[in-house]
């Protein structure tokens, strides 16, 4: 397992997923999200006190590091296809778990929003996982 290949592929996949998350949350469904989360205004940070979106890179890098760990030890070697498959499986489990626990406690969670959010995370993980596998296989020669 090459440190250079791992680092570059993890950062590359995280940047791609970060860009997709920005496009999704801040452009495509910005209005719908605004409406859905308005019910939670009493417990959310005020909009101008939200931290910079750049911080989102940290959990993404942890996620893709975990994916690179799984894929480099799993069957079939590291490729765009195995990276995509592993990232989608891990993203599904983690995001399903997060949405499930939110629905267990919060009254105003929208099932439709959760389904859309899960769908987006799977697409994002598929793209990011492919980038991770592709970069890793090219650099780890």
């Amino acid at each position: 397992m090459s440190l250079k290949a791992t680092s570059i592929s993890v950062v590359g996949a995280s940047v791609v997923s970060w860009g997709l998350a920005g496009l999704w949350h801040m452009v495509i469904i910005a209005d719908m999200e605004h409406e859905a989360w308005a019910k939670f205004s009493a417990v959310l940070r005020p909009e101008d006190a939200m931290p910079s979106p750049f911080w989102w890179m940290i959990p993404l890098m942890v996620f893709y590091w975990a994916v690179s760990y799984f894929v480099s030890r799993g069957p079939g070697g590291v490729s765009a296809a195995t990276g995509m498959r592993t990232a989608v499986i891990v993203a599904f489990v983690v995001n399903f778990m997060a949405e499930f626990s939110m629905h267990m406690f919060f009254n105003d969670m929208s099932m439709g929003m959760s389904a859309m959010s899960l769908g987006f995370e799977l697409v994002s993980a598929a793209v990011g996982g492919s980038v991770l596998g592709l970069l890793y296989s090219k650099l780890n020669t």
Partner: peptide, 12 residues
């Protein structure tokens, strides 16, 4: 840590 990080980013 990742889940709590997300929570702290958005919830007050």
């Amino acid at each position: 840590i990742c889940m709590d990080f997300w929570w702290m980013m958005f919830f007050n």
